[in-house]
């Protein structure tokens, strides 16, 4: 039962808005994680799946009563599928004022090259 609950809680997360741009060197991803301290940001790659997660580090005053709520979950999550020409081992990240900037370089082998076709 607790597993079911944990799984359900895992489902409930804010989807952070992102910008993704690409050039010949790789992909740059920007994502908004307002309220997330650096130590509670978690970026991981498993196979071709890139997961971005963040927990808010809010400390609310004792006994506060909510009167207007836009953000009602304390965490963010978003998952992307990478493609094989991206070098997931060389991802670099910067995080400042709640904005994540991720650089995913293209692998050497993904650089443009000529393929010779042999006819037997």
């Amino acid at each position: 039962m607790s597993n079911v609950k944990a799984e359900a809680e895992k489902e409930n997360a804010i989807i952070p808005p992102v910008d993704v741009v690409e050039d010949s060197k790789g992909i740059v991803l920007y994502a908004d994680f307002p309220g997330v301290p650096k130590e509670k940001l978690d970026i991981h790659v498993e196979g071709e799946t890139l997961t971005l997660e963040g927990e808010m580090g809010l400390v609310m005053p004792e006994g506060m009563e909510a009167i207007h709520v836009d953000i009602d979950l304390p965490r963010y999550r978003r998952v992307f599928t990478l493609s094989s020409e991206l070098d997931s081992g060389k991802i670099s990240a910067e995080f400042s004022h709640g904005v994540l900037k991720l650089f995913i370089p293209k692998a050497e082998h993904a650089q443009p090259r000529k393929i010779s076709v042999q006819v037997s």
Binding site: M60, G63, E65, I67, H68, V69, I71
Partner: peptide, 14 residues
């Protein structure tokens, strides 16, 4: 996006 809450002594806006 904003959250607003009140306590007995203050109004807190995020």
């Amino acid at each position: 996006a904003m959250n607003v809450g009140t306590t007995s002594g203050s109004v807190e806006i995020y």
